[in-house]
């Protein structure tokens, strides 16, 4: 028997900046295959090969292919520039990791502020709402420019002068607004009876949040959170706009300027994809698993 209020997280998926909607209705990429058995797999493999071969043939034999190839898929250029770009990508990973830690903490604070009931907490709720509305309403790249160039330019005593530092701060401020909304959806998805149970044991409001609501809420929002992680990893490229010390995208840009060739961007793209595709697949897999579990009538 399932516990009323224990099951069924609602759809919690908050779109990260500029992201297309998540596929909700369809089942997993491979799920249809397992039902069809070996024959199904064979058909899938053959038709995939045929489709990709035909597409490839059309592209390669199109009139402008040689030029496209020279500009974007230049082997020599790639060999030349890719190692540099790949090593610069470590910086993107570093920005990502540092930002993520602060985003997770700050966003949770914002979400908790917003969930506090009663007139006493109205100012906190209002602040949280204004904050999230503000940062969700302006392009992340604008915040990166504003802080990344603006703050160092003021030359305030005791304030870091590094453009990269402030660009990462901008990412933190901006992404926290989105992640706070994800957390909030999670918090609101916890049935009020859970809080009633906790409060009836004499736990304070804060204790109920800490021990009962937040642990369950966070578990439910892991897929959409990961989704925002993917967005953040991509948006570390925005730091390129304000820094002198290059990360992967900036490095690619410098190479492009030097050689009048766009292949370095391909290198940068590959580095991003190496990280983001597994994350995206993981999100999909988690969502599938959650859905299967919900259909099986499981609890959490």
């Amino acid at each position: 028997m399932s516990v009323p209020g224990g099951g069924g997280a609602p759809e919690l998926f908050e779109m990260p900046p500029g992201e297309p909607d998540l596929p909700r209705g369809r089942s997993g990429l491979l799920s249809g295959l397992s039902q069809e058995g070996a024959k199904g797999v064979l058909i899938a493999v053959v038709s995939t090969v045929v489709v990709f071969f035909v597409l490839g043939w059309v592209v390669v034999h199109s009139e402008n292919w040689p030029e496209v190839k020279r500009a974007f898929f230049n082997g020599a250029e790639f060999k030349d520039t890719f190692p540099g770009i790949a090593s610069r990508f470590l910086r993107n990973v570093e920005y990502f990791l540092i930002a993520e830690v602060f985003i997770l903490a700050w966003a949770l604070t914002l979400a908790v502020m917003r969930s506090l009931p009663g007139p006493v907490f109205f100012p906190l709720r209002l602040m949280s709402i204004l904050y999230t509305d503000f940062f969700r309403g302006i392009p992340t790249v604008l915040v990166v420019y504003l802080l990344g160039f603006g703050v160092p330019a003021m030359q305030l005593p005791g304030v870091p002068r590094s453009n990269a530092f402030w660009a990462v701060v901008a990412l933190i401020l901006s992404y926290s607004a989105y992640v706070a909304e994800v957390y909030r959806a999670g918090i609101e998805s916890i049935h009020p009876s859970q809080v009633a149970s906790a409060r009836s044991l004499g736990l304070t409001r804060m204790q109920s949040l800490r021990f009962v609501v937040i642990p369950q809420a966070v578990r439910r929002v892991i897929p959409p959170l990961l989704n925002d992680f993917v967005g953040l990893q991509k948006d570390t490229a925005l730091v390129a706009f304000v820094v002198a010390v290059p990360e992967a995208f900036k490095q690619a840009q410098l190479e492009q300027y030097a050689d009048f060739n766009f292949t370095p961007y391909l290198g940068a793209a590959i580095m991003f994809l190496i990280v983001t595709i597994p994350m995206t697949r993981l999100v999909d897999w988690l969502i599938q698993r959650e859905r299967a579990r919900r259909q099986a009538g499981g609890g959490l």
Partner: peptide, 13 residues
Amino acid sequence: IGIVFQAFNLFPH
């Protein structure tokens, strides 16, 4: 005061 509800409301986690 202890109170127990119809729907148990145990903490599932």
